[in-house]
Design a protein around this nucleic acid. Sequence first.
DNA 1: GCCAACGTTGGC
DNA 2: GCCAACGTTGGC
Length: 152
Amino acid sequence: MNYWLLKSEPNEYSIDNLKKDRVTPWSGIRNYQARNFMRDHMSVGDPILFYHSSCKIPGIVGFAEVHSRPYMDYTAWDKTSIYYDKKSQPHHTTWTMIDIIYVATLKKILSLSKLRNIPSLKEMLVLKKGQRLSIQPVSEMHFKLIKNIVNL
DNA sequence: GCCAACGTTGGC
DNA sequence: GCCAACGTTGGC
């Protein structure tokens, strides 16, 4: 089992949206490293930290889980989609996605600034300078520490 | 809104 | 295959 952190801009898609939808395809990932994580390393049931970025208080806001095997990101060949990629065609796209399912919302956001103040989390990728990947692996230790901190 | 850091593109 | 230019991310 692997553990993950998924970034999302709450203006675009927040934990509340996920709670309402329950399950959503994680479409629109157009970064090879992030694609590879989904395609090659995610399994159904993998736990996910849901992270809000590019907002007033960035941080971890909830939990989710991988809910499907990887499959082709159909938004890549949808000309009306903001994720349209002219190099992709049905059944020949380079882009992959998975579905995720809602698990829980934190009572209070575990903010980025708070995360930075927890020494045992210092090595988390999301805390490293210049780390822009929207899908990041999280170590089991870090995941469990965070679970304890938020008491869920 | 600024800007550092990073990924991608494209000319050569 | 190098690398400058450009676009994007995302915290501040």
